[in-house]
Every structure is written in structure tokens, then in C-alpha cells.
Simulated assay, not measured.
Amino acid sequence: MSQSEPTPDAPRPPPLYSPARVRELLDRHGLKPTKSLGQNFLIDGNILRAIAEAGGAAPGVPVLEVGPGLGVLTGEVAARGARVTALEKDERLRPVLAETLAGLDVTVVWGDALDFDYAALEPGTHVIANLPYYITGVLLSRFMNAPAIASATVLVQKEVGQRLTARPGEDNYGFLSALAALHGSVRHVRDVPKGAFLPAPDVTSAVMRLDFDRQRALPAPELLRFIEAALHHRRKTLRNNLRLAGHAGDAIDAALARTELRPDVRAEDVPLAALEALARELGVVR
């Protein structure tokens, strides 16, 4: 990955808060949004300010952004005094970001966010980002497992936001819900309509804030694999899912009895603490 250093003395261009300004910028650089990279540029000033505020952008705060695009959210965060590191894959945007981020304390790291070493971040880093929708789940998992990241305030598909906040027994509960609960807490900040983007995406979005409890030990990989298998077919019985994962029926029945779970309980209805207890009973974790 390569880096671009900040250029603190260059004049600041006006913010990109209108479709006409964004189209003019793209046309001038001969660019069009790339669907395969999930490029839907957020241009609503009120929402951009709300994301920066909810994410904790403030003087001296280290912030990581994934997919700065045209640098609109980046500029809003950096203008509040945050020290921003932005990961961008699309090399075509080099001249655009040189223009839109001029005069701000932003370091652009050029390369794939999936190859970035999140363990090397400064402790207390806050993620503030409009995540590429096609790799949202993978990136959230990387953030959760990076001890230096204190929180992630991210724009995601509304459906993903509902999964993040769902509890056992609710329609949207699944492995992502359990993963978020294992690492900390989640709150819904606000929904974002399609018209706030250029081009407009096919789905409604939501701003979510995840706060990671770094006083907890990271969950063991064996536990995560167990919970993922248990919730893989969440409407099936937990017993059937564990059989599909390779556990013996007799052992499952005995473990269910010891944890006071019904033999026919559905995976989506089981509290996270009960799944952890079941993993211990089955010898998956100690």
C-alpha cells in the first residue's frame, strides 16, 4: 500500500453538497462512479455532519475512514480537527482527493482495505466511514478484532443495521447480531434515504455506531465458529444445526439438557450466553 501525506497549506475548495458540484468534479476528471467498488457518494450536508458528530470527530482524535471516495465525509471529519487516515482502492481518485482534501490533516493510504493491517492503528482510533456495501460484513469483523479500534460509526444498508441491533427471537437475528454483541454494543443513529447519494443506491441506508468493549478478551475463534454454525440455519432447530456441524446427537442432547434448553429450540431463539454455555458443555471451549 502507498500513502499520500496531508497538504496543510493548500486552499480549501467548497464542500460537495450538491449533485451539480459532484457531477462537475467527476466530469472535470473524466470519472464515473464504479458500481463494482460500491461507489455511491454521500452528498447530504446534514447527514454528513450527523455522522461526523456521532463518530466522535474532534481535535486530535485519530480516525480511520474506509473508502473516502470524493473525500466529502473525509473533509467533514477532518475539518473538526480529527487526524484522518483514509483507505482508498480506486487509484483514479488520486487527483480528486488531492483537490478536495487540500489543506486538511488527512493521510490517504492507497490499496485494498482487505489487505490493511488494522492491528497497526493508533490505540483509540475511531472508524467513521461510508462502507462499501459489498464488503461490509468482512470489514466490521476486522474492526471488531482490532484492539486499537474503539468504535465504528458506519453507513451500511438498513438491513445490515437491523441485523446488527437484533436480539435473539427477533426476525433479523443471526451471526452478525451475535458477533456485535460479543464485542460490545450497537446503536442506530439514523436512517439515510436513497436521495442523499449520487448515484442513488438501490436500498435505504442506516448510520450505526458500534462501541467495542476492549476490557473484554476477544472471543476465541473456536467459539465464533461454533456460534456461526449454530446460527447458520437460524430457523432450524439448534440440535439439527449442531448435527450438521459434526457434533454427535447424544452429546448434543446431553448438553442441551444440562443448559436447560429444549431439544426442539430454534437456533434464532437461543440467548448468546446459552450458546456460550453449550459450547463449553460440548468441549468446544473451556
Rank of each mutant, 00 (worst) to 15 (best):
M1Q: 12
P6Y: 03
P14R: 04
L16D: 02
P19K: 11
R21I: 04
R21P: 01
L26D: 03
H29M: 05
K32C: 02
K32M: 06
L37F: 14
N40I: 07
F41D: 07
L42A: 04
D44R: 04
G45K: 01
N46R: 05
A50W: 00
I51N: 00
I51V: 08
A52K: 02
E53A: 09
G55K: 03
P59L: 03
P59S: 05
P62T: 11
L64T: 14
E65H: 08
V66E: 04
V66C: 06
G71Q: 01
G71L: 00
V77C: 02
A82T: 10
A82L: 07
R83H: 09
R83V: 14
L87D: 07
E88W: 10
E88F: 12
K89G: 09
V96C: 02
L101S: 00
D105G: 03
A113R: 06
Y118G: 13
A119D: 15
A119W: 15
L121E: 15
P123L: 05
G124S: 08
G124W: 03
T125W: 10
V127Q: 06
L131P: 00
P132A: 11
P132S: 09
Y134L: 08
I135M: 08
V138R: 09
L139S: 01
S141D: 04
S141G: 03
F143M: 04
A146E: 10
P147M: 08
P147T: 06
I149A: 07
I149N: 04
T153G: 03
V154A: 04
V154S: 03
L155R: 01
R163K: 13
L164P: 01
E170I: 09
E170R: 07
N172L: 10
N172E: 15
Y173L: 14
F175N: 05
F175W: 13
L176K: 02
S177M: 08
S177A: 12
A178S: 09
L179N: 03
A180C: 05
G184D: 08
G184M: 04
S185Q: 14
H188L: 14
R190Y: 06
G195I: 10
A196F: 06
L198Y: 14
D202G: 06
R209M: 06
L218M: 11
P219E: 03
A220C: 00
A220S: 08
L223V: 04
R225W: 07
F226P: 03
E228G: 09
N240F: 09
N241A: 10
A245Q: 06
G246S: 00
H247E: 09
A248N: 12
A251E: 14
I252M: 12
A255V: 15
L256Y: 14
D264V: 10
A267G: 13
E268C: 13
P271T: 11
A273E: 15
A274L: 13
E276T: 15
R280E: 12
E281I: 14
L282K: 14
V284H: 08
V284Y: 10
